[in-house]
Structures are given as C-alpha cells and as structure tokens.
Design a protein around this nucleic acid. Structure first.
Lengths: 227, 227
DNA sequence: AGTCTTATTTGATTTCGATCAATGAACGCG
DNA sequence: CGCGTTCATTGATCGAAATCAAATAAGACT
C-alpha cells in the first residue's frame, strides 16, 4: 500500500456513509476515525493474503477489491467482490487468527484500514460497533449463501440473467446501466471463466439484452426473468 | 416445533459450551438463559423459511440442521449443515429483515431459540454478546467462502478427499470414523448429487479409503492428499 | 422374520462449462 | 496516429457431473 494518511474530510464522509460506521454513535465514530488509516492501492496490489496473521480490518472507500482463495496449484477462485462503502468481510478476524482468503485491488482503489487489536478494544467497550460488525457479517453471510446456491442451482446464462435483473431498479421497465468493473471480474464473481461469461451474454442477446463494452441494455426484464 | 421448555441442567451445559455462549461473561450468559427456549424437532421439521420475517435466533444442541435455498422451481441447494453447539448463522438477522434461507432438521434434533428482538436488546447493552455474534459470523463467512472456493476449484473426488482429510486427527496416520449423518446430507453439503458422492467414494477406494455404511476407514492420508 | 420404505449404488446418456487456441476489440503510451 | 498490451469473443474439444433409470442395501415397523 502507498503511504498511509489520516482520513481527510472526503474520506471521513465516505466512511461515515459506509456499511460499518453509518449506524454508529458519535463516540464510536470518533474512536474509529482516530485509528483509521487511508491508503491508495494501484490495481493488482494485495491487501492481505490467505494464511497471514490477521492484523488489519479493511473497508473500501473507492474502487473494487476482489477476495479469492487459492488451491495448492495456485489456481484462484473468487469468492466475493467489494465496492465503495463495503467492509471487507474476510478481514474481520476477531479471534486473533489468520486471514482466510486473499484480497487484491481489482483497480486503483482507496482503502481504509483499522488495526484489528484496537478495533477489538473499541468493540469490546462499545456495543454499537460490535453490533455493526455483526450486522455487516450477517449480510455478507447471506450473500455468500446466495452465491453458493446460485452456483449449485443455475446455469451460466441463468446466473448472468439474475445478476442483470438485480441491477434493474424497476421490475418491468427497460433499463441501461454500465458495469462498474471489467467483465473478467464479473465472471469471477459469478464463478465463471471469462469465455463462459461471454457466451452467456451472447445467449442473452436473444432475450432482449444488448452489451457494448461495459454498457448493458435490458429491453425486457420479463424475458430475462423467464430464463 | 414441539412444546417449548426452559433449559434444564443438561441444556444449560450444552449451551454454555456452544459457540455462542462459551465466551460470554456471567451476566450475559444469565440474560441469554433467561430468554432461551428449548424444543425438540422431529426429522424434516422446518425451523424457519426463506422470506419469512426473522423473529428467532437458533442454536443446535443436538442433531443436525440443514440450511438451504430454493429456486423458483422448488429445487433446493444446501448451503450449510449445522451440528451440536453450532449457532445457525442464517438465523442471525439483526436488522429486522427476513430469513435469507430455510432451515430444516435433518434428523431428530434439540434446538435452542432466542427471540431476536431481545437478543438485540441484550447485545446492544453487552458488548461481549455482540462480539460473540460477530466472531461466530466471521467464522461462518470464512467457511462459506471455503465451500464456494471448493466448488469452484475442485472435482467431486477432490472435494470428498478434502472432507475426509479434515476429519483425520493426525496428519499421517490411518484413521477410522463414523459419518455423523446420512450420506445424502454430506452430498448436499459438498454440492453434489448423491450419485456423484457415491461415485467419488468408489473412486477413492483406489486411494486407501474404505466405506461400509457410515463407517469410513482411511488407510493412508498421504494418498488422499495427493488427489 | 417378513415387508415396506428409504437410502445408496451402478449404468447410461445428456448437458454444461473448463480449457486451449485463435482472432478481434479496446486501451494506454509514446 | 501507430504500436504494443490486455481484454473480450468465438471455435473446438474434452471431461465432469447432473439427470434418469434400475437394482441393491439398509433401516424401520409389525
């Protein structure tokens, strides 16, 4: 990570609105701001690695961070993708153990980090912080279960269709949006090889989906729902 | 669930040793015991269903509980299997939302349940309880990521081999043990159809694994590690 | 012990996606 | 603008596992 700095006004704003701090009382916010350090990461820089003793808790301020696990042959399986405002669940190691996964900046990112020992100290005295951690982890566990079920129940086109439908604000209306990250990241998130994602997008062209670069247009969400 | 009862001495003992209460201070333990209700479930009985408003937190005292998600066609994908002492992560819904998955007793089970509103009240005042929840959820998130990665990186025989190796107490020694639940449950846990699990066990016979009913004997853990 | 039900195993077929390879598109840099 | 690099798409092949079916084994009940 590049040289760390204390949070400025802009970072404090983002932190205040993040999933971790947004529900905290004033004193807990102050305590966390006191120990926060902000750093810029270039694309591909590691935040932490699977098996290392866990020392820092991380939160994404801007950019994206992919979290993956390795097999003995060095192959990687993405397990989660974190964006602006997200607490990196894999960095919340409260029992003094080791990181269970590897985190890497998927693009240039701004990250806040907090010394885990000090987080435990604060959370051990301030139930609102401990509850915020528990609440964030509860939501992430639910999403992990959703990913597991998605993999186990659905084909590649179905998974992509479900992802696209989740981006539609209104149930029945055509919509356009821009993928916030590279398609290879989306492939990893959905448990697919990039070629398989590409084929799924091709298949979905026959179901009212148009893709041009990162721009996605969905003409008929109903058609997508029927896949 | 059958008629609920307050915890007796035996149940209190199990709860005290469970993942949730074992790290709590005396007063938090007392508060949780106060609101605990214990119930027997016959096999196949539902604890809660996906989409229902979450009202109870659940912990397994004995038996096994499978947690699964459904697709619109009614197909089920197991996402976790909880045993004695386990807090059912999918029931820890702290934001007043709904259950994200369905829980069902896989065999006759004894379950402790706690009103979620009251849990939030206690945890909002007692950081040790909130921290215990966060810690438990952190571990479960790590396991969910491990399952996701296992599915994405490994074949059926490899997944079974890894499961068996995790049951070996000593790294290099032959070992025997008894599967604690039906093979169809293990299949679901590993993301396999029962036929695929059976084929994997057959394949592993050539790698020092012998199975007779629920009894499993591993002659050479090293051979298993090489799969 | 016999019967019925459920779990497990084995066989065959089909489907899906990983992998490898080649080509094209997009982006960054000079 | 051109070149080099990286990302994305398309084609072909192969392997893994789901699915369907049938047979066998195990467990529960009378």
């Amino acid at each position: 990570m590049n040289r760390l700095m204390k949070p400025g006004a802009r970072e404090r704003e983002t932190l205040l609105n993040s999933g971790l701090l947004s529900a905290l009382g004033v004193e807990s916010v102050a305590a966390m701001m006191e120990i926060a350090a902000i750093g810029n990461l270039p694309a591909r820089q590691m935040l932490f690695r699977e098996g290392e003793p866990a020392d820092m808790l991380h939160s994404v301020l801007s950019g994206y961070v992919r979290v993956y696990k390795l097999d003995p042959d060095g192959r990687e399986a993405d397990v989660e993708l974190y964006g602006p405002g997200d607490l990196i669940g894999a960095s919340v190691v409260l029992d003094g153990g080791r990181y269970g996964a590897t985190a890497q900046a998927a693009e240039p990112s701004l990250i806040a980090r907090f010394d885990l020992k000090r987080v435990r100290d604060i959370a051990g005295r301030r139930p609102d912080l401990a509850m915020a951690l528990a609440n964030a982890l509860s939501g992430q566990l639910a999403r992990a279960f959703a990913s597991l079920a998605d993999d186990r129940l659905h084909t590649a086109p179905q998974r992509v269709a479900r992802y696209l439908l989740a981006q539609c604000p209104a149930e029945d209306k055509a919509t356009s949006f821009r993928l916030p990250y590279q398609k290879s990241l989306l492939a990893g998130k959905l448990g697919l090889a990039p070629e398989a994602l590409s084929r799924a997008f091709s298949m979905l062209r026959g179901h009212s989906v148009n893709v041009r670069g990162r721009l996605v247009h969905i003409g008929d969400p109903e058609a997508l729902r029927r896949i």
